[in-house]
Design a protein around this nucleic acid. Structure first.
Length: 272
DNA sequence: AAGTTGACCTGAGGGC
DNA sequence: TGCCCTCAGGTCAACT
């Protein structure tokens, strides 16, 4: 599920609830996520104050008066605000309980358990965060940067975009959508794309991600924002998941790139 | 070094 | 209806 726009949607929804709040407790029902939730985490968190909620790529960083939580939603994760009376369902590994006049909890749902909840004294230097590439919606990301990273390489351009150490936050949906918008074939070797086309691609990445953030992310199956409402960007998808349907530009049926990992969708006429 | 594949999990959907 | 197979929004580790 969650790529940059979905994580950003979650972050924006949680800010009013979390910023300035005191953590009353962490209730762990299932510690076996991508990495185990540290056993002593609840003890460390009780009484801590949330000073800020930020995002780096697909990671949420909950800054505390001492240290920070690092949250990743994996493939199937979401965070929702619930009242204390709402009983937890299956696949809901933890609640972060916040104190206040009307106490509430931030509840994680993660059926596939590819998500993570970790603690760090210095999150920006954490081994998962430090190697991330630039944020695509901030300065430092442009065509020249992408071209420099792709220079001389035979890797498919889609896989370059999916590598968080090259650029942070892009997943399979938005990589495919941006490549369509830029008219570039997802399998094209990264080293065989002109400077001009790299500039078009970088702008397409920025445009697609910005529109998706505005729409509240993409809900294909089960993504929900912190208020439980879905995103709406799936209505604007032009190629992802649309094999056989007409290309919005030329009406040629959308093709699917199979073989080797995750699938790619593209128009074989518009994208070279 | 760069590229490719497997691994980690659950649940949904299609075919028979 | 039910079983089995395939696939899914991520990404690290271990191979070639």
């Amino acid at each position: 599920m969650p790529e940059l726009p979905e994580v950003e949607t979650t972050r924006r929804g949680l800010i009013p609830w979390m910023r300035g709040a005191t953590i009353a407790d962490l209730v762990v029902r299932e510690p076996r996520l991508r990495w185990p939730i540290p056993a002593d985490l609840a003890v460390r968190l009780r009484g801590r104050v949330v000073t800020d909620l930020t995002r780096r790529g697909k990671y949420l960083i909950v800054s505390l008066d001492k240290g920070a939580l690092i949250v990743h939603l994996g493939m199937s994760g979401s965070l929702r605000v619930v009242g204390p009376e709402v009983p937890p369902g299956p696949s809901e590994p933890f609640d972060l309980v916040l104190a206040g006049a009307s106490p509430m909890a931030v509840r994680m749902r993660d059926p596939r358990r590819f998500g993570a909840l970790l603690f760090s004294e210095d999150p920006l230097h954490h081994p998962l965060i430090a190697p991330l590439g630039p944020e695509p919606l901030e300065a430092g990301f442009d065509g020249a940067y992408l071209r420099a990273r792709g220079r001389g390489r035979t890797i498919a351009i889609r896989d370059l975009l999916l590598n968080g150490h090259i650029v942070a936050g892009i997943g399979n949906i938005y990589a495919n959508e941006a490549l369509f918008e830029a008219g570039i074939h997802p399998g094209r070797a990264a080293g065989r794309i002109s400077a001009d086309r790299y500039e078009v691609l970088a702008q397409a990445v920025i445009a697609v991600l910005s529109r998706a953030v505005e729409a509240g992310g993409t809900t294909l199956k089960d993504f929900a924002g912190s208020d439980g409402r879905p995103g709406y960007f799936q209505l604007q998808l032009r190629v992802y998941g649309r094999e056989g349907r007409p290309c919005p530009r030329c009406a040629t049926p959308i093709a699917r790139l199979s073989g080797g990992g995750r699938s790619g969708y593209y128009c074989l006429k518009c994208q070279r």
